[in-house]
Structure formats: C-alpha cells, structure tokens
Design a protein around this nucleic acid. Structure first.
Length: 206
DNA sequence: TGCCAGGCCCTCTTTAGGGCCTT
C-alpha cells in the first residue's frame, strides 16, 4: 500500500494555460516526500523555444533573457522522468500540471507509472470554510510560515507539500486515521463535498 | 482571419451557465 505522505509534489511555471494552444513549460519544481519528510528537491528553468509574454514575465519573475540560456526541455524532462520514477504525484490543481507533464514528456517519448492526485480538490473538501482554495490562501488559512515568493516552481511545490502534509495530519487527527493511503486521497478527490465527513469517518472505521 | 483551456462543482440544474483554480 502506498502512503499519501510518500510522493512527488510538483509545480510547473508555463508560458500560458494550455499546451494544446502551444504553451510550454518554462520551469519545473518538485519535492520528494517520504513518510512525511522532504528527502529530495528538483528545480530547473526550461528553454521553451519561444518568447514568453510580458504578463508571464511579470507573473513569474522569469525573463526571456534567462530562458534563452536555460537547458532544453529534452534535457530537463529526461532528468525529471528519472526523478519521479516509482512515485505517485501531487499538484495543486493537478489537471493543469498533468497536462503540461504529459505534453513535455511526450516530446521525449517518456512516460510515468505513478498516479496523480490533487491538493486543490482535497482542500475544497477538507477546508470547506477557507475563504478560497488558492495555494497562497491555504498557506495563510492553515497558518504556515511563508515569505510570499509564490509563482516560482520550487517554492510553490514546497508550499503545496506543506499544505498536503497539514491536510493529512488534520484528517488523521480528526477522524482517527492511520498512515493514510494514497488511494484514500484519490477517492477523496471524487467524493461529494457534502458527504466527505461520512466518507472519512467510514475510512477511519474500516 | 479570428480565435484561443479544461476539469470540477454549485445551482435560480440535468435540454445550462458560470465561478473557481492553475500560468
């Protein structure tokens, strides 16, 4: 049984919202957690072979000048495919990062065996009283220390990992669950919000 | 030329529309 506190939490900065519209990854950041502790980190800029808009330069702080000298996607994604091998994957709004991961890996004919789950969908269920479920808001809502350097890949993956571990800790304590399996968090992503409490109580009793 | 995302989830719903999230 794979544990939900053992996984790779990843985050892409990209040139836009959709690889299907020609957008590319410009930075990847990730942390590997094993039994709740960060054991490895991965970070690299990625040369997207295109100019990024001034909006994206402002949003991320990543400039066209930096990207011009960045390593190729082929190089970075090959290393990243090795990094995630054997691990399940987590991202904040996973459907977004999964699309870019799949698109960039497809370019080098690589794939991965791990399963994806989403910290955003989990947070919408576990923290239903939060003002909203953006990463930065959740960091404040939970009371995690932050220097506010959001919108960079490694920082966002680090903060997503902290939010994820806080959620696991909270539901573990609240519903008397032990060593929460990854499969439980995947099911939680698809559980109706109104019945999530019953779902977790039953999971604790099982 | 002009357009430009997509999945989840709520509700004034299900023969639909719009807000939330990610860059």
């Amino acid at each position: 049984m794979s544990r939900a506190d053992t996984a790779v939490i990843l985050d892409f900065e990209t040139s836009g919202l959709s690889p299907d519209s020609g957008d590319r990854a410009i930075e990847i950041g990730a942390v590997k957690i094993v039994e709740g502790k960060v054991t490895e980190r991965f970070q690299s800029l990625i040369n997207p072979d295109m100019y990024i808009s001034s909006f994206i330069e402002d949003y991320t702080g990543i400039t066209n000048a930096e990207l011009k000298n960045a390593p190729t996607s082929e190089h970075v994604m090959s290393q990243f495919a090795n990094f995630i091998e054997g691990f399940n994957l987590i991202a904040h709004n996973a459907s977004f990062d999964k699309r870019f991961l799949d698109a960039e890996l497809a370019r080098i004919s690589r794939s991965y065996a791990g399963e994806f789950t989403c910290s955003l969908l989990a947070a919408r269920r576990i923290y239903q009283d939060a003002p909203n479920h953006r990463l930065g808001t959740l960091v404040d809502y939970i009371g995690l220390p932050s220097d506010g350097t959001f919108h960079r890949a490694l920082y966002d993956s680090e903060m997503t990992a902290k939010v994820w571990l806080a959620m696991l800790s909270d539901i573990q304590e609240q519903f008397a669950l032990e060593a929460i399996p990854f499969s439980l968090m995947k099911k939680l992503n698809k559980t109706a919000k109104k019945s999530v409490r019953d779902f977790l109580v039953k999971a604790g009793a099982a």
